[in-house]
Amino acid sequence: MDKATLIGVGGAFGVIFTANILEGGNPMAMFLLPPLLLVFGGTLLISLAGGTLADGISSLKALKRAFLGGAAPAGDVVPVIVDLADKARREGLLALEDAVKEVDDEFLVKGVTLAVDGTDPDEVRHILESEVVSKKRTDKQDAKFFGDAGAYAPTIGIIGTVMGLVHVLENLAEPEKLGHLIAAAFLATLWGVLSANVIWLPVSSKLKRLSELEVARMMVVIEGVAAIQAGANPRVVRSRLVSLLPASEQEAAEAA
């Protein structure tokens, strides 16, 4: 589990509330239901309007992945593939039928199973690459949903402030109410800008990054399965896969 987003967003709110306290404010005064309902409810519903219902449901499920999910490093799968390549070279592809039962990576299991079943190498690559394309498409839509939310939220906040100021003008005859009403009006803009820059845009960026890492791992798997089918030497397989890794992971993969 990668806690970067959880730490970053939680820490940002902590800094904001601490600054508010140091300035003599009361953080609880920021939590008024009308502006919160307008900004968060309006932003999510308008973001939903820009796609299909299925898109919205998928994106909201991805919200948990942004805060609590993570992507396994691509280098972790290299030793597994090398072991499978060694076994296939010594005992044949059919020997991998039992070996893949101990593999945790579903994408790798699928690729090796296709190879063991005698599927043409070009067809195996096509099937696996099609799954990568499908994943990219889904991940792009999930990230776009929260990117759109980040764009809409400040405008929704301004709408809330204008509504609040209209209400202020309706109560000019009662000066004792104006301070509270003006503060409530500007809270909508505050939450619009704050939610966009502290929640929605970071979540969108995190989902994009997770997608990049997961796709990189899948591409390593595709090359590994192709090498296994070709009966390549395990040392060659290791070198080929390590060359696909980011520089930060190559040294660790070589050691493993």
Rank of each mutant, 00 (worst) to 15 (best):
M30K: 08
D117A: 15
S47D: 07
S130R: 13
T52W: 10
F145D: 07
K61R: 14
A54M: 00
D105V: 00
I222M: 10
E174D: 09
G8I: 02
K144G: 06
F67H: 08
L63I: 08
T161L: 01
A256N: 07
G192H: 12
V82F: 14
L32Q: 12
V78F: 11
A153P: 01
V78P: 10
H126G: 05
E106C: 06
I57H: 11
S47N: 08
E106W: 07
K87A: 07
T161W: 03
S211N: 05
K208Q: 02
E254M: 09
I156T: 05
R238N: 14
V237N: 12
G147Q: 03
P234W: 03
L94V: 08
I222K: 14
E254Y: 12
I222G: 08
A71M: 14
E97T: 06
V166S: 01
L38I: 15
D142V: 14
M1Q: 09
E91C: 00
V221G: 05
L245K: 02
V220P: 00
S211I: 05
E129A: 04
L241W: 10
D122V: 15
P246Q: 02
P234L: 04
G111L: 04
P35V: 15
A247I: 00
L207T: 01
V203Y: 03
L36K: 13
V133F: 10
R137H: 05
L45M: 10
M1I: 11
V116G: 15
L53E: 12
N20L: 13
G147D: 05
G24V: 06
S243W: 12
H180R: 06
E214F: 03
N233A: 08
I158G: 01
E131Y: 13
E176T: 11
D117T: 14
A216D: 02
K144T: 07
K101L: 09
T43Y: 15
G69F: 12
I21G: 14
T43W: 15
L190V: 06
V124Y: 06
L169T: 04
W191T: 10
W200I: 03
E214D: 02
G8D: 01
L33M: 13
G164A: 05
N233C: 06
K206Q: 03
K144D: 10
D142G: 07
H167V: 02
A255C: 03
L169H: 04
S59E: 07
F13W: 15
P154T: 10
